[in-house]
Design a protein around this nucleic acid. Structure first.
Length: 253
DNA sequence: ATGCCACACCTTGTGTGA
């Protein structure tokens, strides 16, 4: 079972890349972020024609998340229960007895800003909710664009900003892994300077100036089946790419 | 210090992203 996460930065613009990538990478489950379109504007027919069930939690202009799956998506839930939020950042579903949570974490803009406070509140609410979800579904995958680089090795040496790397954000990431969720990418040997996002500006991709902020977290009950976790840089090399590239985990299931 | 890029929109500039 192959599961991937990809912040597509506009589903409408990236649809050709997505369809090509589905055909070449053959993932079983795909978690998408930053659709930037409402549910009614999602190109469902094209995605279904590629062989995937689709469930979305869309929003115009900003945010929006989707789950694509070859197997049916069951018990679909949207947003964080009990956390009032007009921003569409979460969708979850059960796929072949695995609970998959797809999330687009807030950016936070700058440490100390109002948006940073929202990011921390959102992270606390997500963590509380996931604690319950894990009790109900021991086999769980939390994946998406976390907007947090958990360690210094996940950050280009010339990254000057505090956002994405602050102690508060990293503590929140640790609180999530502390629930019994492992960072799949770090279970394996990886190249130095492995990133999942590169700024569009300053030739960042060519210089490999980036961050590893897109993650796949795997619950303890599922960890024995985890076989690989890789970053697929190919879509980032195309014309008009998303600034993020897919991360893929493979399970012996 | 800003723009450097990309995307969306009740667009011809502005907000947001990371």
């Amino acid at each position: 079972m192959k599961i991937a996460t990809w912040n597509v930065n506009s589903l409408k613009v990236r649809l050709p890349h997505l369809l090509d990538w589905l055909a070449s990478a053959c993932p079983d489950v795909v978690c998408l972020q930053e659709l930037k379109c409402e549910d009614g504007a999602v190109p469902r027919a094209e995605i279904e024609a590629a062989g995937y069930h689709v469930e979305t939690n869309g929003q115009k202009t900003y945010n929006g998340v989707a789950l694509l799956s070859r197997s049916p998506l069951q018990e679909v839930s949207r947003d964080i229960p009990g956390f009032a939020d007009p921003q569409k950042r979460v969708i979850a579903a059960t796929i072949d007895d695995i609970r998959v949570v797809c999330a687009y974490f807030p950016n936070g803009q700058a440490v100390g800003s109002e948006k940073f406070a929202y990011k921390l509140d959102w992270l606390a609410a997500l963590t509380d909710w996931l604690k319950n979800e894990l009790a109900r579904h021991p086999k769980l995958i939390l994946t998406g664009d976390f907007n947090i680089a958990p360690e210094d090795r996940d950050v280009s040496p010339d990254w000057k900003e505090e956002i994405h790397v602050s102690p508060q954000e990293r503590a929140a990431f640790s609180a999530l892994t502390g629930l019994g969720l492992a960072d799949a990418f770090r279970r394996f040997e990886q190249a130095e300077r492995s990133f999942s996002w590169w700024d569009y500006r300053m030739n960042a991709f060519r210089r490999n100036f980036g961050l590893r902020i897109d993650h796949i977290l795997v619950s303890d009950a599922l960890l024995p089946q985890l076989q690989h976790c890789t970053i697929d840089k190919a879509p980032r090399k195309l014309e008009r790419p998303s600034d993020h590239t897919p991360v893929i985990a493979e399970f012996a299931l």
